[in-house]
Design a protein around this nucleic acid. Structure first.
Lengths: 353, 353
DNA sequence: TTGAAAGCGCTAACAG
DNA sequence: CTGTTAGCGCTTTCAA
């Protein structure tokens, strides 16, 4: 290990023949210090290449400039988008982002939160797992924190998310309006707040239609491609086979697209599809994927700005605040009108371009 | 700000009626402490929910358990894959990952490295920008560090990367072998080590062919979709129009795919394409994208393991070490044989499935 | 307006 | 095997 002698507050004090506290205060822009002194201190500090020792500062109770981001899996584009947006707006407020992945495992989540609190982070931005560990909840209460996307009341009432119910409601309503009656939904487990909201959106949309409809629901881990693939196979095998499928997470959507592509089912002739999220590539999947687009980046930025604002007012935050962002349905070619006497015409084919 | 009374080593000491140092040593598993004592301390610590104060520990000279990851943009799947892999293997070594984005801007990069060193990070894993700032290089020398993907000798000789030259060589060779002679390459600027290597691969492959060939080279920021789109348009407009295009970064590939899809050029009839990286969705793009797959996740894991190993031996590392991972060409449908008397047959079309 | 001094929680030298 | 003591660099009383 390298031993590098950082220049300390004492060094500049010695050089200027003043006390350490004077230098400390000058650096902190304390009103009691004369402008002349501040000036001199600033110059010498700069000249000697002084950098504050964060550890020492932290020990004096000042929390670090670290903000912990706790997400299931950074490879999920939702979360990498969030990480990027947060990183940007936290940086400009002089905060550093630390990354913790939970893999949606409450034990891992607890460990990570333990780590973060022991590192004295200034705050935690978390996408909580389905059922966070009580100890994790307890630890979070000791640190400023905010929930993103998923919300558990046990953790708090500070939350930025999207309207999950509305998202899937729109998606489902779209196929219902186009005449589909046997509709499958493949989405995240209802134990997750997002999963529950989306499932509700699906059911609400079906209920809102006049004609009786026939739903197939497949619920599983929202980040599991394997689950998505298997679920789609089950949906295709079920009888009567659904004429439309709505997906409830990005990963599940990707898995379903892959599987449909692999099995050779024709879209939209044999099956209509509405996806979740608008990934690069969804546009060029088959006839173009009709999907629900979510303002994840804006959401994260808003969340970051607000959180930093909260941290600045060094006040205990218990007052609830929620921000719900609306989804948008993007209609492309993966859904078509369904008529009961369905004639499977020879599929119209589509070339690149 | 919340005032939360963390339980300290003293609290445990008081409870057990021993000295603080005994507890400290027991917790550190010091050989001089009796097993019985360690046992008791461990129990009480656990019971009281003791978490070590990192700030205090750091002040005693021990560096933090933070490792800084410095990348251009976490939304790039290369880097999110890397972040995930590193996060996993650093976590198991009890390190925390902090995330810094540079947007390939040397000033930002310098700022981020400043931040990291002042936060006393245990080490830095960096994908350096094209021309790192001299001060950044200087700062890096003060901290254990390793380069990922891109390598600058000024920064050091510790590097994990892929064989960029080989990657593009394979891609280019593939179309050359299929008879193409007018070939375009759209890739990152040669100022980047990766850009230079890939460009070399392109040129080497062309030179290696017997028949004379005609190259078009478009170089720009590798992470700019806009550049990719514009470059492709220029390529299509050039005369004689190339019959094949090879791309040299993930983002450029994505941009090129989008643009080809948008302009309606038929692949592979009018244009053969070889991509870079194997993103989800490349499989279902048009006739399936023939592309170079790179073992990014394994690379990052290897890098993480090795770096942690280096940190454990608390020795100054100056000895060079490089690890080069090989790419793999994945052949799908986006290239076809080229014959000079090219007959543009009516395009064979492909449906989903 | 500045100084002196007391710690923050932990580790490490130096005694027992 | 365990206790005492002295700081690490900084902030923050309390004095001057």
């Amino acid at each position: 290990m390298l031993s590098y002698n950082m220049v300390t507050i004492k060094d500049i004090a010695a050089r200027l023949e003043v006390s350490a506290s004077t230098v400390g205060r000058a650096l902190a822009d304390d009103p009691r210090i004369s402008a002349a002194m501040k000036q001199k201190v600033a110059e010498v500090a700069d000249e000697m290449g002084y950098v504050a020792n964060r550890a020492a500062r932290m020990m004096r109770g000042v929390s670090s400039n670290l903000i912990g981001l706790v997400v299931p899996d950074i490879r999920n584009s939702f979360y990498s988008t969030i990480a990027h947006a947060l990183s940007q707006c936290l940086e400009s407020a002089d905060y550093q982002l630390t990354l913790s992945e939970t893999d949606d495992d409450r034990q891992v989540e607890l460990r990570q939160i333990r780590e973060l609190t022991s590192a004295n982070v200034a705050g935690i931005i978390i996408v909580p797992s389905a059922r966070p560990h009580p100890d994790a909840v307890r630890l979070l209460k000791l640190t400023p924190h905010i929930q993103l996307l998923r919300k558990h009341s046990s953790i708090g009432e500070q939350w930025f998310g999207i309207d999950d119910t509305q998202a899937i409601y729109q998606a489902t309503k779209h196929v219902v309006n186009r005449g589909h009656r046997r509709i499958a939904y493949i989405g995240g487990i209802a134990e997750l707040p997002t999963g529950a909201g989306r499932l509700k959106g699906f059911r609400d949309a079906l209920r809102s239609s006049e004609a009786p409809s026939n739903a197939v629901e497949e619920l599983g881990p929202p980040s599991s491609m394997d689950f998505g693939r298997d679920a789609l196979r089950r949906v295709l095998a079920s009888s009567p086979r659904p004429t439309a499928v709505v997906t409830g997470s990005v990963q599940i959507t990707q898995a379903v697209l892959e599987e449909i592509w692999a099995t050779g089912v024709h879209v939209p002739e044999e099956l209509s599809v509405v996806g979740f999220g608008d990934e690069l590539g969804f546009r060029w999947w088959g006839p173009g994927l009709t999907t629900v687009s979510l303002p994840v980046s804006d959401l994260a930025t808003a969340c970051g700005l607000w959180f930093v604002h909260q941290l600045k007012l060094k006040t205990v935050r218990t007052s609830p605040y929620s921000s719900i962002s609306p989804p948008t349905l993007i209609v492309r070619g993966s859904c078509r009108d369904h008529v009961e006497t369905q004639s499977l015409s020879s599929p119209s084919r589509r070339a690149v371009g």
